[in-house]
Amino acid sequence: MKKVIIIPIAIAILTVVAFATVNTYRVPTLDFPFLTGEDRPETVAAVEYVVEGLKCRGTSMGFARMIAQTPGVVGVTTYARTHSAIVEYDPALTDPDVIREAFMAPVERDGQMYQFFRSLSQRELD
């Protein structure tokens, strides 16, 4: 019955392969362009935030709502696995710190103030 060892070995190898391959492709949880076509500015910069509280499509929608009203924000793409968001913006109108303040702003719910998102890190993309 030496063949029984095949089962745990196969389980171990396939589990490792599954975890090792997740970084080989990246599909967004939410891809939300606020400005498209002629409305989209010619010069667009991008910043990536790692955000506490960004964990699913629902929270991604909430995140998008919080930055949608910020002048100069062009679009947002979120990734639930890495709890990260890439925000495109017009550098002539806004900057990463203003966008960060927008999504970290406390929100009132039933008379109480809540902070749903907190920036853990930010990195400007080329």
Partner: peptide, 24 residues
Amino acid sequence: KMYTCRLTELNVSLMVSLVVLTIA
């Protein structure tokens, strides 16, 4: 071309691994 809810690449990778494991 997007995930829904809390699903991520890990769920898809684990499903592929499960298919291979079941075949084996």
